[in-house]
Amino acid sequence: MPDHTAVELVARAREENSAAAMPNRFLDLLEHGRVPIARLSWLAGEEYRIVDSDRRSFALLAARYPEPPAGAFFLALAQGESQAFHLLHDFAAALGMSEKDLRAYEPHPSAQAYPAYLAQRAMFGTAAEVALALLANFEEWGTYCARTASALRTHYRCTDEAVAFFSFFAESPADFPEQATAVVAAGLASGESPEDIARAPRLLHAYETSFWDAMAEDLT
Rank of each mutant, 00 (worst) to 15 (best):
V7L: 14
L9E: 03
E8A: 15
A92V: 02
A111H: 05
E178S: 12
F165M: 08
A20M: 09
H32Q: 15
F211H: 12
F58S: 01
F138P: 02
A174I: 10
E217N: 06
H205T: 07
Q120W: 12
L134K: 03
A122C: 05
P201V: 08
S57L: 02
R202I: 03
W42V: 06
A162I: 01
H4R: 14
E31H: 07
H89R: 13
D28H: 14
C145E: 02
T148I: 13
S190R: 15
E15M: 13
A214G: 11
P69V: 08
E178N: 09
A164R: 15
I37F: 11
H155C: 06
A19Q: 13
L30M: 03
E140M: 09
G142F: 00
F211W: 10
Y144P: 02
P68Y: 07
G125D: 05
A13H: 04
R34N: 13
A6Q: 09
T126F: 03
E171R: 13
P36G: 05
P201I: 08
A116D: 12
A111S: 11
A44H: 03
N137G: 09
F124V: 03
L203H: 10
E99L: 13
E31L: 04
A131Q: 00
R121N: 01
P107I: 09
A20S: 14
L95S: 02
A180W: 07
A94L: 02
W212V: 00
A13L: 03
T181F: 03
R14T: 04
A189K: 13
E217M: 10
F166K: 04
A113H: 11
H86L: 15
L95K: 02
A131M: 03
C145Q: 12
G125A: 09
A200I: 01
P115N: 08
S193A: 15
R199E: 15
A38D: 15
A128M: 00
A136G: 01
A70G: 01
F58N: 08
R14Y: 01
W212A: 02
A111P: 03
R64W: 03
A38Y: 01
V35G: 12
A20Q: 12
L203E: 13
E217Q: 12
A113R: 14
S172D: 14
L152S: 03
L43S: 03
A70M: 04
F26G: 07
E178A: 12
Y48S: 11
A214W: 04
P23S: 10
R121Y: 01
M123N: 06
A116C: 08
L188F: 08
E46D: 09
E171D: 15
G187L: 11
E129T: 05
R34P: 01
L102E: 08
S18E: 14
L188T: 02
A206L: 11
T209K: 06
R39G: 08
A149R: 06
P69M: 07
A38F: 06
L135F: 00
S98I: 07
